[in-house]
């Protein structure tokens, strides 16, 4: 198990290095002057030169890359050109919104998808199954911002249970923060849950056709026991894969939802940085997201091994 973890960690560490080289190359090395691009059409040559100095664009490619990568390793992501504050601070602030939101949405999506997928698989071909399949089809087809607006209409405008947007910060207490994130999390979770429930259903149905389920039934397990004790864990591998992909998406992919609910998250930060041509922020954020995806992949790999003994090599 330890060797498996080390091997995976090593290969993911390598991916991280490769990703950093690619990102650096795309933004800084390819033709075109980032400083001129950031300042726009009407910039004076002096302003461009000053920004080049500030961006650290002087010097060889290798030394610039090492400076950039080394800075990131020590927590120095540079200073945002538009916000005039260290990128690390900006990201840290936003991460406190985006990370809880992503986790919240993922938890909701999993909590909805597991029982729904399980019931659909257990009642395969019945009315319940058809109902669930129809509902999840709808959940995938309808865009999440539309869900978001619907939720705002019902729970914020009409019932006044939640506020329609904004984020008070965690200083007002855990509950207030969670409450502000609830509607966005639901809006994000519904489509994800629909996908996950369908994956869960098909994985379970496939597992239920396996010989060892028949063996379990021959041992005297009821259908329900056979599903819970034998099928569920075997169906988890594809489900874990999807959960990993969904988390990565939720972390950065919530741009539209963050805009609908006016949340100061990473998605909005990326969006703003791109429109304002703040390459320093874009570069650091993309790297951070790559890092997040790689960490999640690593965790999913570990989860595979925890579930399936065939993946743990004997040492």
């Amino acid at each position: 198990m330890l060797r498996y973890a080390l091997t995976r960690a090593l290969s993911l560490g390598l991916s991280l290095v490769v990703a950093s080289v690619v990102i650096f190359a795309v933004i800084e090395v390819i033709p075109g002057d980032p400083a001129a691009y950031m300042l726009g059409m009407n910039a004076t040559p002096e302003a461009v030169a000053a920004l080049r100095g500030q961006l650290g664009l002087e010097g060889s490619v290798v030394s610039r890359y090492l400076g950039w990568a080394g800075g990131m390793l020590s927590g120095d992501f540079g200073v945002s050109y538009t916000y005039k504050v260290p990128v690390a601070d900006l990201v840290a602030q936003r991460l406190w919104v985006s990370l809880p939101l992503a986790l919240y949405a993922l938890a909701l999506s999993t909590l909805i998808a597991f029982p729904v997928g399980l019931i659909a698989a257990a009642r395969r071909g019945g009315a319940t199954d058809y109902g669930i399949m129809g509902a999840t089809q709808l959940g995938i087809a309808v865009p999440n911002f539309w869900f978001a607006m619907l939720l705002v209409m019902v729970f914020a405008v009409n019932l006044r249970w939640f506020s329609a947007g904004g984020f008070p910060g965690w200083e007002d207490g855990l509950l207030a923060g969670l409450k502000a994130l609830t509607l966005p999390a639901i809006a994000l979770a519904l489509p994800q849950a629909s996908i996950l429930a369908r994956v869960m259903r098909s994985a379970l149905i496939e597992t239920l056709g396996q010989d060892y389920i028949r063996t379990a039934r021959a041992k005297g397990l009821s259908r329900r026991q056979a599903v819970l004790r034998h099928a569920l864990r075997n169906a988890l591998i594809p489900v874990l894969t999807i959960i990993g992909l969904q988390f990565s998406f939720l972390l950065a992919g919530a741009i539209i939802i963050e805009n609908v609910f006016f949340l100061p998250g990473l998605g909005r930060l990326v969006f703003q940085a791109i429109t304002q041509r703040d390459l320093i922020v874009v570069e650091s954020l993309v790297m951070l997201l790559v890092f997040a995806v790689i960490v999640v992949t690593f965790l999913v790999d570990l989860a595979y091994a925890a579930v399936d003994p065939r993946l743990r090599r004997r040492t």
Binding site: T215, R233, V307, D308
Partner: peptide, 14 residues
């Protein structure tokens, strides 16, 4: 009790 033909797949791999 019952046993089946295909022992390779008759046991839960996990």
């Amino acid at each position: 009790g019952m046993i089946f033909q295909e022992p390779m797949t008759a046991l839960n791999p996990l």
